[in-house]
Simulated scan of single mutants.
Amino acid sequence: MSSRHDHFPRADAARRLAMRRAVADLDATWSAADTAPGGLLTAIAKLADAPADVAITRLLPWLADTGWLCGRLDAALALLAADPFARPPLRMVGGGNGGPGGLVLADCGAIRLTLQLRPFTANGAAPGTTVFVPGRAAIHILDCGGAALCAHRVVVSAAEEAGGFTAKDAAPCQTQPPRPLRTGETLLLDTARQSFTLQNRQARAGRDILYLELTVQPPSRLPIRAYDIASGRLTHVSASRRDSSFRAMALTLLRHLGRTDAAPLFVAETASEDFAARWTAMRELVALNPAAARPHLAAMAVADPHPEVRAAAAATHALFNKPSPSGEGSETCELVR
């Protein structure tokens, strides 16, 4: 199957050099604007140590006045008009398999500003899951796309925020009836307790949904939680710290590569401050090398600070001694999630 990339000017060194220079010049122009006294990154840097709600409030003008964004997108389009093989210096996020995606406009510490696009899908099914991430967010709707918004809320106690969260005692998710999404509105969310999902409301007249999303996600002992919308039931828990999430992805990759020599990295992560990260690392180690995991799993079953991690470790460790159909001890183990 042919592709536009089949026509990339591999043999035209002058054209490729001109593209690289044009991209570098545009990147330098944007960087200078962002780091100037009144620039976006300068504004964000001043709020590095501010409470999340304060940072959101101070940065709201960047969502309300989008002249700077229009200028940036016009410059990117001009770059592409000059040469369709040029790559504007904008980092993309998401967008796989036709799903939601966007552009990272600023990313500094716990603060990120993105331009998000949710493609319209005729007769698309309503989302079945909603996710709560510790932090704050402001969502400014640039084009509602004729969509409906469903607001979701869950109760989180101060003790849970301080590290006492357990799946057993998690409050159920409550969902409000859908209401029309409105172009120009700004949603302010405590994302540990509030989330939203969007669904098509006009099967024929619907459009893509476009919005700016400003998030502040400082380190938190409260995990990311996913809920089934229909039942309100908690379905999944994962580490909320970005560094923990990155390490979890790395461990999963190492496990898929069969890197048993990397077992010490898995063991080190089982001592993480984040209980979800500890258990994720242990699950991956059990899948990678059950024999190496066994003593650490036994220790976790006895001494882990979190009761549900201890219980999961104990249940998983018990599977090591579960008789196989042949009557012999099994060295494999079903992962308890």
Rank of each mutant, 00 (worst) to 15 (best):
L181V: 00
T191L: 01
Y227T: 15
P323M: 15
T191Y: 03
Q202N: 05
A81E: 13
L149D: 09
A226V: 02
R20F: 11
L297E: 08
A318T: 05
G71Q: 03
R207Q: 15
S31I: 06
T252Q: 10
A125N: 06
G163D: 02
C150T: 15
T215R: 11
H236L: 10
P89E: 04
N289F: 00
A106T: 10
D83Q: 02
E331V: 04
P127N: 12
E284V: 10
A28Y: 02
A33E: 15
P84S: 04
R112T: 12
L222W: 02
A36S: 15
A248L: 12
H7E: 08
Q174P: 00
A170Q: 03
S244P: 01
I111G: 03
D53A: 13
Q194Y: 07
P264Q: 07
H256S: 09
A162Y: 00
P180S: 11
H236S: 14
A292K: 05
G128R: 14
A50G: 07
S31N: 11
Q116Y: 00
S326N: 08
R182S: 11
L41P: 00
S272A: 13
N200L: 04
G39Y: 13
L187Q: 12
M19Q: 12
L69S: 05
S195C: 04
R278S: 01
A293C: 14
V54T: 12
R221H: 12
P51E: 01
G95D: 02
F275K: 00
A248T: 14
T29V: 07
R72A: 07
R87N: 06
T316Y: 07
C108K: 06
A301H: 14
M282W: 06
E328S: 11
G135I: 03
R118K: 13
L319F: 08
F266A: 05
A162P: 02
A24L: 08
S231M: 04
A82E: 13
A43F: 00
T252A: 13
G124S: 09
R221D: 11
R112N: 09
T129V: 15
R259G: 06
G128D: 09
C70V: 08
Q176G: 00
L187W: 14
H317E: 07
G102K: 02
T57C: 05
P89Y: 05
A315S: 15
T270E: 06
T332F: 07
R225E: 04
V302C: 12
P177M: 09
L79K: 12
A298C: 03
V286M: 05
D169G: 01
S240T: 08
P290G: 14
A303G: 08
T215L: 03
A315C: 06
T129G: 01
R58A: 15
M19R: 12
S245R: 14
P119W: 02
A293M: 08
P9N: 04
L115W: 02
H7Y: 05
V104H: 06
A262F: 03
T130W: 09
M1Y: 02
R204N: 04
G109W: 09
L265F: 10
P177G: 10
C108R: 13
D274G: 05
A205D: 09
A203E: 05
L115T: 07
L187M: 13
L40H: 12
R15S: 03
A230Y: 01
A106E: 08
